[in-house]
């Protein structure tokens, strides 16, 4: 389990776009670095993130080693009814983690 911060408004208006900020605590080891003994440090990144809102896809992203450590993503979503904003991501070890916050449409 890695620490995930999702910054989204708790209440939104239907049909009005709002910004979501996502921060995942992850080293995003690029696979390009060497340790002190000259051995290559194996790649260990989050390579795929999917964001859904009330079951509908907001975006699906493939990340490459060029994304900085502790990946930060800010994007815009729009809701028509109350539901969960869900972030689902997979790392190189095949571990998938899901985090969500509730968004209420007022």
């Amino acid at each position: 389990m890695v620490r995930v911060l999702i910054n989204a408004p708790k209440q939104v208006r239907a049909g009005q776009a709002f910004e979501v900020k996502l921060l995942i605590n992850h080293p995003m080891e690029s696979g390009q670095r060497r340790d002190t003994f000259g051995q290559a440090i194996p790649r260990e990144i989050i390579h795929s993130i999917t964001c859904t809102l009330g079951g509908q896809e907001v975006f699906q992203a493939d990340l490459f080693p060029a994304i900085s450590a502790n990946p930060f993503l800010a994007f815009w979503a729009v809701a028509t009814q109350s539901g969960d904003l869900t972030i689902r991501f997979t790392d190189d070890q095949g571990t998938t983690q899901t985090d969500s916050v509730a968004i209420a449409v007022v």
Partner: peptide, 26 residues
């Protein structure tokens, strides 16, 4: 960069605006 690809993203129906911010390595 050692690998030229940085990011590939598909916008879905619940996307509010085609806009994205992130942090990259150069």
């Amino acid at each position: 960069n050692p690998l030229p690809e940085v990011l590939r993203l598909r916008f879905g129906p619940a996307s509010g605006a085609p806009r994205l911010s992130t942090r990259i390595r150069l």
